[in-house]
Design a protein around this nucleic acid. Structure first.
Length: 842
RNA sequence: GCCGGAGUGGCGGAACGGUAGACGCAGCAGACUCAAAAUCUGCCGAGGGCAACCUCGUGGGGGUUCGAUUCCCUCCUCCGGCACCA
């Protein structure tokens, strides 16, 4: 054994040991004590930085801890390997996406290994490999069969500068994430998954996810955005010229039907499908068409900007308020959105702020139909809409009701009269999965002149991505310019046909990878239900908060669909979710804190730090930074402290090697200990208790590590002399072994090495996690704090079993306490056994 | 605007309603050393006092309690999510 901590020698050696021993290979057969520990699989972008590391280090610590607790742990890893960055790199550098992706995978795999993070690599999955995306395509076909996949026209995010569509998450505040150009809407034929069909179940089942952070559940609930209200049809006043209309009426949705008697006009979105027909050949047609044209050129950012005054024009048409029969004007304005509700709203300026502003601007009538509790609302005093609750007034048979009471009654009335009724609306929209991009799973359908959209027969899967494709960004999928790919006979009629050139959103790939890990090499099916049902749900899922909505919602949706199809027997994929905070780093330029990322140029590579300090130091520091669910600031100086600590642990074992060896087999005997030994013995077991609590609870590894540091500090106060007593050695050895065991999930290499140095067989993962001995936690004497009027005025040491009366008597007798009681009468004494006495004076 | 989360030393952060600041970083002093590094020891919220000690202190204000960083009300600030949502 060397005096200096030889991490450069230890770490590669143990990494090889774990790999060769298959230390992380799960026992596929026995799932009675199964623990599926999953980390979100990464996108293989160039290389990992220490910010990424947090995710893997947390997961590895959990997996190691669970193994020591005797669980059959499954920790697989794979690659979310399709995606835009590889393709953009190909446009820039000419390196094919496949090449750069596999090169990046090799780099990241090496980095993970150097970190000492272990996986069952036999189960590795790579979403861009045909044996994986074949099944992604298969799921698409199954969705298509069940009517859950469909093609429809939709507005997509279009970046004019990159000449491509962007995913929602690539649009930041209306700007392209990469080039900061304004994103505009474009109408394109797109493929969708019908997520809206599952909106209610996705919402309801959130209540089953009590192992999820509350905030993630809240975010999902907000995203689904269930809103209960009323639907009603406004009949059109027929045209004077007698011309026919495309529809009999205009449906609209409201959550405030109680205000309907105050409705003085109606507003349509510029994109409303019937709008142009409604104004055909009217004097207003020209103005309306100009308005529509102008609205269509605006970016969503411009349209949504609060500062922009809402504009609108009168359509020349009127509609009938179904409640009171009033004919009211129909306007078109950009403050109404086609994508929410029905694309038309009833406007109640007296009780809606936006309607108020619009009515004021265009001189539209305003009419009060809800009174405040004081019944003091007067139109001439109002400076804004009254949107609060109140009493319904001037509303026919509903006048006099409280507005909250009126809502169900008025809704029922709509149903009774047949012009509307209750309606539930969701903010959630169908999932747009088309991408006009090359580096994704091709959508497996064929377009035939005669037969229309024809699914690729299952036996022809996978639809392979062609190689040697040109990547010029033109807005059309690169696949469309690849004749060898595009031209195929129609599977139905045999005539020449063309393949779909869009590929699938990469979130489709990541919606089922956790199932593929369970039978990664299965050839005739994507999964095996028996194996899935035995291992699922994932016991602990660990990933970044940035996936709180998209990935986690899509994966839940997929799981429910697969469950409905009978492919699996459970409907929620992730029982416990842990979302770690981001690692940030202060910018050298402006001194501000930014998320560590390549684009911000503030990344810290693990490679150099591991070379200089070792993986255990980097791991320990990463976990010690702060509570893992919170963002943390990376400061290179702090890493010295972690290294110093490991060096100290190493040296303590080295310095005391003779005593430690001599104590093998000796058991600490509380009856034979002196006071210092008993303190260390107690500290050892207190540390076990506290660290175990941190591991089981909120994963507060930072405080777990602090506890272990305290134990090492305590060991220094009770060092064993080479010729010292047997008890001293035994207690010290027990403390040292405890440190090694407790530190092993965080700093596994040094723990493995010291475990062997302490005379154990290699393989600390097979050792039992220590258990706290309650007898060791007890004390003969306790220090009691004495408070007078809430302030600490003294302490007294008493036998632990002293009775209340004795404690109180002793407390009142402490000199510092007596001083503060002089001239006062004791009003009340509270005794907290073993802790304190609180005295209140009159 | 709505919904979450958070405000504690110079810094990261600890504290089942019970001694606020554990643990670490940075800093200061000392030991060892020719010297430095490493290591070890001590100090390290603010103010007052020769000292024993005293006062203040967990974003502000109020409340519950013998006792509040912790529970309740209210306000302020910051961060995150959603947002012309009808």
């Amino acid at each position: 054994m060397q005096e200096e901590y030889p991490f450069r020698d230890i770490e590669p050696r143990w990494q090889r040991h774990w790999r060769e021993a298959g230390a992380f290979r799960a026992d596929a057969g026995d799932t009675s004590r199964k623990f599926y520990c999953l980390m979100m699989f990464p996108y293989p972008s160039s290389a990992l930085h220490v910010g990424h590391g947090r995710n893997y280090i947390i997961g590895d610590a959990v997996a190691r801890y669970k193994k020591m607790r005797g669980a059959n742990v499954l920790t697989p890893m794979g690659w979310d390997a399709f995606g835009l960055p590889a393709e953009n790199a190909a446009i820039k550098s000419g390196v094919p996406p496949r090449d750069s992706t596999f090169r990046n995978i090799a780099t990241m795999k090496r980095q993970l290994e150097a970190w000492g993070v272990c996986y069952d690599w036999d189960r590795e999955v790579t979403s861009c490999k045909p044996d994986y995306y074949r099944w992604t395509q298969w799921f698409f076909l199954k969705f298509l069969e069940r009517g859950l996949a469909y093609k429809g026209k939709a507005a997509v995010n279009w970046c004019p500068s990159c000449a491509t569509v962007l995913a929602n998450e690539q649009v930041v505040n209306g700007l392209c994430e990469r080039c900061d150009s304004r994103v505009v809407a474009r109408q394109l034929e797109q493929w969708f998954f019908r997520t809206t069909q599952y909106a209610q179940r996705l919402l309801d089942d959130l209540s089953l996810l009590d192992g999820w952070p509350e905030r993630v559940r809240t975010m999902q609930a907000n995203w689904i955005g269930r809103s209960e209200g009323t639907r009603m049809d406004f009949a059109l006043v027929p045209r004077e010229d007698g011309a026919a209309d495309p529809c009999a009426g205009v449906p609209c949705f409201t959550t405030r039907v109680d205000t309907i008697y105050g409705c003085t006009y109606m507003v349509m979105a510029p994109e409303h499908p019937h709008l142009k027909a409604l104004v055909a050949n009217l004097p207003q047609e020209r103005e309306v068409r100009e308005f529509i044209a102008r609205a269509s050129t605006e970016s969503s950012l411009e349209r949504a900007s609060e500062s922009l005054e809402k504009r609108g024009v009168f359509t020349g048409r009127r509609v009938i308020n179904p409640y009171n029969g009033a004919a009211i004007p129909l306007w078109v304005s950009d403050y109404v959105l086609m994508e929410y509700g029905t694309g038309a709203v009833m406007a109640v300026p007296a009780h809606d702020t936006r309607d108020w502003a619009f009515a004021k601007k265009y001189g539209l009538p305003i009419s009060i139909s809800i009174q405040n509790p004081a019944r003091s609302l007067r139109l001439e005093d109002m400076t804004d809409a009254y949107a609060e609750d109140g009493v319904v007034v001037d509303s026919g048979p509903f006048s006099g009701l409280h507005n909250r009471e009126a809502i169900p009654r008025m809704t029922a009335w709509a149903a009774e009269k047949g012009f509307g009724g209750p309606m539930v609306h969701y903010r959630l929209r169908d999932w747009l999965i088309s991408r006009q991009r090359y580096w994704g799973a091709p959508i497996p359908v064929i377009h035939c002149q005669a037969c229309g959209v024809v699914p690729v027969p299952e036996k022809d899967l996978p639809v392979l991505l062609p190689e040697n494709v040109e990547f010029r960004p033109t807005g059309e999928s690169p696949l469309a310019r690849c004749p060898a790919f595009m031209n195929v006979p129609c599977p139905r009629c045999g005539r020449p046909a063309r393949r779909e050139s869009d590929t699938m959103d990469t979130f489709v790939d990541s919606s089922w990878y956790f199932l593929r890990y369970l039978t990664p090499r299965l050839e005739n099916a994507p999964l095996d239900r028996r194996v899935c049902d035995a291992w699922m749900p994932v016991d602990q899922y660990i990933g970044g908060i940035e996936h709180a909505i998209l990935h986690l919602l899509y994966a839940r949706f997929f799981t429910k669909v697969l469950c409905d199809m009978g492919l699996i027997g459970f409907s929620e994929p992730f029982a416990h979710l842990f979302t770690q905070g981001m690692i940030c780093k202060r910018s050298e330029k402006d001194g501000l804190l930014y998320k560590m990322s390549k684009s911000k140029g503030n990344v810290v590579s693990p490679d150099r730090l591991i070379a200089q300090y070792g993986a255990d130091t980097v791991r320990l520091y990463t976990l010690f930074l702060g509570p893992p669910e919170k963002d943390a600031e990376w400061d290179d100086r702090g890493i010295e402290g972690a290294h110093r600590f490991l060096r100290r642990v190493w040296r303590r074992v080295y310095e005391n090697r003779d005593a430690l060896r001599a104590a093998r087999g000796l058991r600490p005997d509380p009856d034979a200990m002196d006071a210092a030994e008993r303190d260390l013995h107690r500290k050892t077991h207190e540390t076990i208790r506290q660290v175990t609590r941190d591991m089981e609870g909120a994963f507060h590894f930072n405080s777990a590590i602090a506890r272990i540091m305290e134990l090492v500090n305590a060991m220094d106060a009770c060092g064993p002399a080479a010729d010292g007593g047997a008890q001293r050695k035994a207690v010290y050895r027990a403390a040292a072994e405890t440190v090694v065991l407790l530190i092993s999930p965080f700093a596994p290499h040094v723990a493995e090495e010291l475990w062997v140095q302490l005379g154990h067989a290699p393989g600390i993962l097979a050792a039992d996690w220590p258990a706290a001995d309650h007898a060791a936690l007890s004390r003969d004497e306790v220090e009691i704090v004495v408070q007078v009027n809430g302030k600490v005025r003294g302490r007294v040491t008493l036998p632990a079993d002293a009775g209340r009366a004795a404690v109180e008597r002793a407390a009142l007798d402490v000199p510092g306490v007596r001083k503060h009681l002089e001239g006062r009468t004791v009003r009340k004494v509270v005794v907290v056994p073993g802790r304190l006495v609180s005295i209140a004076t009159g």
